[in-house]
């Protein structure tokens, strides 16, 4: 599969630093499950972080803590490393998602279904899968807040490009015009939404009461 749209560098740095919330981390990890290129970037960034740690300042450890650590060694067995779990390449894209429970598919609008993923949303980020029938046209809409999407299956297009399996769409505070799902197969994507989506245009205002995202 050819991936065209990747997370921004800032997003990858924030992922490596551990400062993305869990919902956003899940969508980024799902892209990483698809994308060698970004995994290579992640390795470089982790190496950079290691370099910063290694060359950074120090804060002295108390003598008591040091002694306690050395005392604990006898009671701390060294673990054997289990063999890596054999995973077929085809199962990989859904592997990060498989850590979480999903709810039931719910109807949200004509041809569109949603399934919430059980990620704690105390940071205000809601995570869900969205499934839209082939050929579905969505009204123009505006993203208020951040909305990150990783496409799992099928493809959609809007005026910012075509998004197929593995692609990552970072739609922060952006206006999307003329979005539609390609013909052929249903489009399924994983979305982390912090804020909400506002439908615009006459069609959007008409269906906004039904399509609540």
């Amino acid at each position: 599969m050819t991936i065209v749209h990747h997370p921004s560098e800032e997003t990858l740095v924030t992922f490596v630093a551990g400062s993305l919330c869990e919902g956003n981390s899940l969508v980024v990890a799902t892209h990483l499950a698809h994308c060698n290129e970004c995994r290579s970037a992640i390795r470089d960034m982790t190496e950079l972080a290691g370099g910063i740690l290694e060359q950074g300042d120090v804060t002295e450890i108390t003598e008591a803590t040091r002694n306690a650590a050395l005392d604990k060694l006898d009671d701390t067995p060294i673990e054997a490393r289990p063999d890596p779990i054999a995973m077929a390449p085809a199962d990989r894209p859904l592997a990060p998602l498989s850590i979480y429970e999903g709810g039931k598919w719910q109807w949200v609008g004509p041809g569109v279904y949603r399934q919430f993923i059980d990620v704690p949303n105390d940071t205000g980020t809601r995570v869900f899968m969205l499934k839209a029938a082939p050929g579905t046209r969505l009204p123009d809409h505006r993203h208020v807040g951040t909305e990150w999407t990783c496409i799992l299956k099928g493809a959609f297009r809007h005026d910012h490009g075509r998004f197929g399996a593995g692609d990552f769409d970072e739609a922060d505070g952006r206006h999307d015009h003329n979005p539609f799902v390609e013909e052929g197969e249903a489009c399924i994507c994983l979305v982390a939404l912090n804020g909400h989506v506002e439908m615009t245009g006459w069609l959007g205002r008409l269906i906004q009461p039904f399509v609540r995202l």
């Binding site: 981390s25 990890a29 779990i85």
Partner: peptide
């Protein structure tokens, strides 16, 4: 939360993906 599991999983993809260019 489960982020440590996500990181470990991403690391595992490298183990089973030996054809990385770097």
């Amino acid at each position: 939360d489960k982020r440590a599991q996500l990181y470990a999983m991403v690391g595992e993809f490298d183990d089973i993906d030996p054809d990385r260019p770097d």
